[in-house]
């Protein structure tokens, strides 16, 4: 049985993807930020499918110490239950903020959760992914188009705009996927980005101010149910041999921004390594040994 790890598994697109993947027979490890939501999600999945193989891990992925802790727990679990192999990692947890708010490290929250958390988690689970010649899937968005990375101020401390921060974090997702392919495709790992389209979830209603809340409440009415994008994740997990594209919507390859260049991907990779503290020598040695 193939194992899949998915973040943001307790609501919206993530929860629906968990349901579909367990139905297709995958063993799913979900990560959720609160124990209560993890419990509720587990009950939801089990009520649909009593035979579902699903385990939840709790972690606030905004905080790097929690990412590191949960990565260790998951590696131990994989060693015990699936011969240390991970078939797919889905970096889906995401948030929207109305204001510039920071994590414990002082990093802007949308950048920290939507991009850095997935970056760090992927690095920590890399040995298990390499063993299984696995896949890494990011939840991106069409909103990554028409924007550039603000290299001189990635956390947008000058003139913070919530939408710019969100769009930029989604461009980071696809640059990271490209960076992973450039580095690890030869060892069998493939990385993808799913564009879920506009989906009816509560993402813009959580921890946001009145204006963002209102706009999202109106906008999401036009969205599709999360069952629709869930199919694309299941497709990318299931397909053999692994698909060769980078950016998918409705199970089909789509065009992405011209900003997705090797140069930008390398630049973001180096910056993210530094911000995640992966730059010290031992971490680097470990990674090259694994490759």
């Amino acid at each position: 049985m193939k194992t899949v790890v998915i973040t943001g598994a307790t609501s919206g697109i993530g929860l629906e993807t968990v349901r579909l993947l367990t139905e297709e027979g995958f063993h799913v490890l979900g990560i959720g930020r609160s124990a209560m939501n993890c419990k509720r999600a587990k009950e939801h999945i089990s009520s649909h499918n009593p035979n579902a193989r699903i385990v939840f891990f709790q972690a606030d992925l905004m905080q790097q110490r929690d990412v590191l802790r949960v990565a260790e727990d998951i590696m131990a679990y994989l060693d015990e239950k699936s011969g240390g192999q991970l078939h797919a990692l889905i970096n889906n947890a995401g948030c929207v903020r109305s204001w510039y708010m920071t994590t414990e490290e002082g990093y802007e929250q949308q950048f920290a959760l939507n991009h850095l958390a997935g970056f760090l988690l992927t690095h920590k689970l890399l040995p298990a992914l390499q063993k299984a010649r696995g896949r890494v899937i990011m939840t991106g968005s069409a909103s990554h188009k028409g924007i550039k990375i603000r290299w001189d101020d990635v956390m947008l401390r000058r003139r913070y705009n919530p939408l710019t921060a969100y769009k930029q974090s989604k461009l980071c997702n696809i640059l990271f996927a490209k960076g992973l392919n450039d580095r690890f495709a030869h060892s069998g790992i493939r990385a993808y980005v799913v564009d879920p389209g506009l989906v009816k979830t509560d993402i813009g209603n959580k921890e946001t101010g009145s204006l963002v809340n209102l706009i999202w409440s109106l906008r999401k009415r036009a969205g599709v149910p999360p069952e629709i994008p869930a199919k694309t994740y299941a497709f990318l997990c299931r397909q053999e041999p692994a698909p060769e594209g980078l950016y998918y919507r409705h199970c089909k390859e789509k065009k992405y921004s011209g900003q997705v260049t090797r140069e930008n991907a390398d630049r973001l990779f180096a910056l993210s390594e530094r911000l995640c503290g992966l730059c010290d020598d031992t971490a680097r040695q470990e990674r090259t040994k694994a490759v």
């Binding site: 790097q64 994590t103 490290e105 002082g106 911000l275």
Partner: peptide, 10 residues
Amino acid sequence: FRIKQGLERQ
């Protein structure tokens, strides 16, 4: 400790 790390990395 965390904010120190974050500042030194940035």
